[in-house]
Amino acid sequence: MSSVRSRDVAAVAPSFLVWTGFFFAPILYLFVVSFWSVRQYKLVTDASFDNYLLAAGEYRHAIVFTLALAALVGVVTTVFAFAMAYMIRFYAGRFGNVLLFIALTTLFGGYLVKIYAWKGLLGSTGIINQALLAAGLISEPISWLLYSPFAVVITLVHFLLPYALLPINAALRGVDDAPIEAARDLGAPPSRILIDVILPQCERGILTAFALAFFVSAGDYVTPQLVGGTDTFMIGNFIQSQFVNRMNAPVGAALAFATLLMTLLVVALLSLLYRRILKACAT
C-alpha cells in the first residue's frame, strides 16, 4: 500500500512543482505586493489596504465598465458558440468535424492580426463603410464602428469564439440521443427539447465557455487600446499603466486582484441565474 502511495506521489510531484513554481508562487507574491507601497520607485513593505481602497474608490467606474463589457462579450460569444456547436452536433452530420476543423483553424491566426483586420473593416475608409457608401445606404462614413465599445466587443467575440466553441461542442457530444428521441415521440416541440433535455445536459460546457470569454475579456488591454479609443479604457489598461508607465506594482496588483474577485462574483451570480432561468422555463 505504501509503495502504491509512493508511486502516486512520485507521479504527481513534477506537475505539482511546475504548478507551484509557475502559477501559485507568482500569484502569491503578487498578492503580497498588492499590500505594499512605492516610494521613490522602490517597493516599501509596509502592509496596508490603501491600494484596495484606491481601487474601490478611484477605479470603481473602470471596474464596473469592464465587467459590463466583458459580460456582454461573454454572453454574445457563448450564444454564437452554442449555435455553431448545435448545428455541428445535430444538423451537419458527417460534415460536422469538417466545420469544427474550419472553425478551429482561426486559432492559428495571430491575435494582433485579427485586431488589425477589424480595424481595416470598421474604419472610416474600411470595407464596411465603403460598401455602405457605394450602395447608397449612408451619405458619410459611420464613425462609431471603430474606436468604440462596439469595436471592442466584436473584436473580442471574433477572437474568443473558437475557444468557447470547444467546451460547448464537447458537452453537446456527450448529450444522449435517447431522451431527445423520447421527447420527440411524446410530441415535444424543438423549443421544449432544447430547454428540458439539451441545455441541462450541457450546462457545464456553456458555463465554461462563458467564464473563459468573460475572464479573458475582463483582463484584456490590447483590444481596447487599439480599437477602443479614448472612451473605452478598461481596467486592464489601468493595470498595464501602473506596472509599465507609473512603475507602481502594488497599485497594479491591487487592481488586478480586485478585478479578479469581482469577475469570480459575477461568474458565480450568472451561473446561479442560468440555473434558475432553466428551472423557471422547465415549469
Rank of each mutant, 00 (worst) to 15 (best):
A83P: 03
M1S: 12
L72E: 10
G229A: 04
F238C: 02
K279A: 15
A151S: 15
L133K: 07
G219H: 05
M234W: 01
I198T: 03
T106Q: 13
I88F: 03
P190S: 05
W144M: 12
A183T: 11
P224D: 09
A71W: 01
L226E: 09
S148P: 05
F22K: 00
A10I: 14
Q225C: 01
A81N: 03
A103Q: 11
I180D: 07
R276Q: 13
L67R: 07
N237C: 02
D220N: 14
T230Y: 10
R173Q: 14
G187E: 11
A85R: 04
A25T: 10
V33G: 02
S139P: 01
A11Q: 09
F82A: 06
S124N: 14
K42Q: 15
T125P: 00
S37P: 07
L270H: 04
P200D: 08
L53C: 06
A188T: 07
Y41W: 12
M87S: 12
Q225G: 05
R94Y: 04
R184F: 04
G174M: 05
F210P: 09
S217G: 08
V18Q: 01
L166C: 05
R60G: 00
H158G: 13
V38F: 03
E203P: 00
K279C: 10
V98H: 02
L260R: 00
A256M: 12
Y221I: 11
A171E: 04
S191H: 11
L43G: 06
F22I: 10
A282E: 12
L255C: 09
V98P: 00
S37N: 11
I102F: 10
L265T: 13
F210I: 13
F215T: 15
L132E: 11
F23L: 15
S2P: 00
A188L: 07
K279V: 14
P200A: 08
F16M: 15
L226P: 06
D8T: 11
I206P: 02
Q40I: 06
I115D: 01
A164W: 01
Q240V: 06
V113K: 05
G21K: 04
A10Q: 15
D196V: 11
A171C: 06
A70Q: 04
R89N: 09
W118K: 02
F257W: 06
V244S: 12
V12W: 08
G93S: 07
C281K: 11
G229F: 04
